[in-house]
Design a protein around this nucleic acid. Structure first.
Lengths: 155, 155
DNA sequence: ATCCATGCAAACCCTTTGCAGTCCA
DNA sequence: TGGACTGCAAAGGGTTTGCATGGAT
């Protein structure tokens, strides 16, 4: 559990990386017509501060000053706008994480809980072909990969 | 919705296919030390009668004489013993279906709701390799394929 | 005769919603 | 200023659990 807590609203000194991330997300939301509000920024900031996929409940706990409904609404908005993606653990627990945009999948470490993007893999095409071979027209899919990340494998 | 309602305990005439399925499952459960009870058979039978992935709630509705808790417990037991597998729809609704055993995935038709097994596809190896390339040791995965089945594509 | 399995209802967890007040644009 | 956003608390749905009863082995 890294204590990677991000200082929010540090508009004076060289701001922590995550502040830029928050600004970026807020501006993307603004482009879509969504308002820039304090609670919203807090949600985004807390989400960005998480080192690994988090639950809505964890965000609520991390933001005692923000209403639970606001956290959920914020999260939903972020998912809908593709800024945050959902991650499903093996036990079907639903978690979230900032999206690195574009279609990709996650490799979830059972030990440390970290999520690593799975890219450069054409599973998708293989899937589509296999489905087509069975006369099925694939339009989407859901994939999660479980196991151990490099660090946790070596220890 | 076929009215493929199985006569339970019809040990007289040539029994419907599903009765054999039920007997088979019950005996597998027996081997594991689980009792052969009427409610349990009803749950299995109802599950076998479904033409496509079903929800726990649907089973409850189909079995008004069986307690809701019993349906849920039965379903859980069947999943744990690998006799029934879970299916996750795009909207994250959880459904179930009798397992055709062995590892496989499902192609879910958005139109008719049918589920077809996806086999003869080495997605798994491709995945494992792609993960390994990133230093990740894959031990499991979750995959659902969404789209239209052959029949629904042609219409 | 055991102990597992059942049924009911209440408890639970997670998420959404209604509504009045607040605040950005 | 108006409409979006927020917070609270209450409602919601889907699933699990406690406990006394019933039934399989």
């Amino acid at each position: 559990m890294l204590a990677t807590n991000t200082r929010h609203k540090g508009h004076d000194h060289p701001r922590p990386r995550s502040a830029a991330v928050v600004d970026d997300i807020v501006s993307q939301l603004a482009d879509l017509g969504y308002r820039d509000t304090e609670p919203r920024r807090l949600v985004i900031s807390a989400a960005a501060a998480q080192g690994r996929p988090f639950t809505a409940e964890e965000l609520c706990a991390a933001l005692p000053c923000v209403g639970r409904a606001t956290v959920y609404r914020g999260l939903r908005l972020l998912v809908e706008t593709d800024l945050v993606c959902r991650v499903l653990l093996e036990d079907r627990e639903l978690r979230y994480q900032l999206s690195h945009q574009g279609h990709h999948h996650h490799m979830l470490c059972a030990v440390c809980g970290a999520s690593t993007d799975l890219t450069g893999c054409d599973v998708e095409d293989a899937l589509r072909e296999a489905a087509a071979a069975a006369g099925f027209h694939m339009s989407g899919h859901w994939l999660e990969v479980y196991g151990r990340c490099g660090e946790c494998s070596s220890t």
